[in-house]
C-alpha cells in the first residue's frame, strides 16, 4: 500500500485525534502558564443610612470588576509563569507540613491528598484485580460446559454497567442503614457508619473497582486458559508435579503476557479514578487527581471556572501517566526493533 492510499485511509482518524486530543494538550499546556482574570478597580462608595438626627454615612473602598461599554466584564489574560502550578502544589505549605512531621497537615492540601489516594488506589486494586480475575477464570474453566455461558453472562454485568451507576448501586447497599451495613452491624454487634470516615469510603471504592474490572481480567485469562499447551501439562503430571505446581510453573507462565496486558490497562484506568468519587459522593473525604481537575473546571458560585489552575493540575496528572507508560512503551519499542 503506497503512502497516498495509506494517508487516505488513516487521514480522517488522524485528523480527529490531532484536532481533539493533540491540540487540546497543547492548549492545556499553554493555558497553564496564563491567567485570565477580570480587571478590578477600587472605587469609593458612600452608603448612608437614615439616623436619628443626622444621616450616618460610611465611606468604604470596594473593588468591583470593570465593565466595558456593553456592560460585560473586561478580562485580561497575562503570563504568570509557574504561578498556577504553585497554587496547585502549595509547596511551602507542603514543606512546612513535612518538616514539622505532620501527615495530617500535609494531607489537608488538595493536590497531595488526591495524589496519595490515586496512588494507593491504583497499587492496591492491581493485585486484587489480577488475583480475583485469575481465580474466576480458573473456576469458570473448571465448571461444566453447560453453566459457563450463564456464568459469563452474569460476570459481564458488573463490567458493562455504567461506572457512576455501579458505584451508586453499591453506595445504596451501604448508605445509612442499608441492608449490608445492617448485616454487618448485626454480625459485629456494633454501630457502623460506612460514610463517616475516609478509610471506609476508600475501602468501598476499592471494592467497587475490583468488582467492576475483575470480569475483564477473568474473561481475558479464561480465553488464555483455553490455549494452555496440554502436552506440557501432561509432562508436568508425569514428572509428578502437584496441582499447585502445575498452576504455578506451567499455567501462570503461559498466562504471563496476558497478565502484563491486564496490568497495563488496569494501571491506566485506575490512575484515572474519577467515577467512584461521584458515585460515592466522597469529595468531602477523598478526592482523586482527575477529580481535582474536574472540580477546577466546574463553575463555582460566581460562575467562574479556574481554567489555569485546572490546566496546571491536568499537566501534573499527565506526568504520572508518562511515568506509568515509560516501561511498557520501551518494551514495545524494543520488540518492534527486534521484529525488523
Amino acid at each position: 500500500m503506497n503512502f497516498k492510499t495509506f494517508a487516505a485511509f488513516v487521514g480522517p482518524s488522524i485528523f480527529m485525534m490531532l484536532l481533539f486530543i493533540a491540540f487540546p494538550l497543547i492548549s492545556v499546556f499553554s493555558q497553564s502558564f496564563y491567567l485570565t482574570q477580570p480587571i478590578y478597580e477600587i472605587i469609593e462608595v458612600e452608603t448612608c443610612t437614615p439616623g436619628f438626627i443626622t444621616q450616618t454615612c460610611v465611606t468604604e473602598e470596594q473593588s468591583i470588576p470593570k465593565l466595558d461599554e456593553h456592560g460585560d466584564i473586561i478580562k485580561v489574560t497575562k503570563f504568570v509563569g509557574l504561578q498556577s502550578y504553585r497554587n496547585v502544589l502549595e509547596l511551602e505549605r507542603a514543606w512546612d507540613a513535612i518538616t514539622s512531621g505532620s501527615w495530617r497537615a500535609f494531607q489537608s492540601i488538595d493536590f497531595w491528598k488526591a495524589l496519595r489516594f490515586t496512588l494507593t488506589f491504583t497499587l492496591i486494586t492491581l493485585p486484587l484485580n489480577i488475583g480475583l480475575g485469575l481465580a474466576i477464570a480458573l473456576v469458570i474453566n473448571n465448571a461444566s460446559k453447560a453453566v459457563r455461558g450463564p456464568v459469563i453472562f452474569i460476570s459481564l454485568l458488573p463490567f458493562i454497567i455504567t461506572p457512576v451507576i455501579g458505584a451508586l448501586s453499591i453506595n445504596w447497599l451501604f448508605r445509612g442503614d442499608g441492608v449490608l451495613t445492617a448485616a454487618m452491624e448485626w454480625y459485629t454487634g456494633r454501630d457502623i457508619a460506612m460514610f463517616a470516615q475516609a478509610w471506609t469510603i476508600e475501602l468501598l471504592m476499592m471494592v467497587y473497582r475490583v468488582w467492576h474490572v475483575a470480569p475483564f481480567a477473568a474473561i481475558v485469562l479464561y480465553a488464555g486458559l483455553q490455549t494452555v499447551n496440554q502436552d506440557s501439562l501432561e509432562s508436568a503430571l508425569i514428572d509428578g508435579a502437584t496441582r499447585w505446581q502445575r498452576l504455578r510453573y506451567v499455567v501462570i507462565p503461559h498466562l504471563m503476557p496476558l497478565i502484563v496486558f491486564i496490568s497495563m490497562i488496569h494501571l491506566m484506568d485506575a490512575y484515572r479514578v474519577f467515577e467512584e468519587i461521584v458515585g460515592f459522593s466522597s469529595q468531602g473525604h477523598v478526592i482523586s487527581l482527575q477529580w481535582l481537575t474536574y472540580d477546577f473546571l466546574v463553575p463555582d458560585q460566581a460562575g467562574n471556572r479556574s481554567i489555569s489552575r485546572a490546566s496546571a493540575s491536568a499537566m501534573l496528572t499527565m506526568i504520572g501517566i508518562i511515568v506509568l507508560l515509560i516501561a511498557p512503551l520501551r518494551r514495545t519499542w524494543r520488540d518492534h526493533k527486534g521484529g525488523h
Binding site: 485525534m17 492545556v28 474536574y294 507508560l325 514495545t332
Partner: peptide
C-alpha cells in the same frame, strides 16, 4: 514504521485522563 508510530501514539492518547482533554476544550 509510520503505522507503528501512529499506533504507539494512539496508545499514549488512550491513557490520557479525560479531564485533561476537557480542560483543553472548555475555554475554546
Amino acid at each position: 514504521n509510520l503505522a507503528f508510530w501512529i499506533l504507539i501514539i494512539a496508545l499514549v492518547f488512550r491513557a490520557l485522563p479525560h479531564s485533561v482533554l476537557v480542560a483543553g476544550y472548555l475555554p475554546v
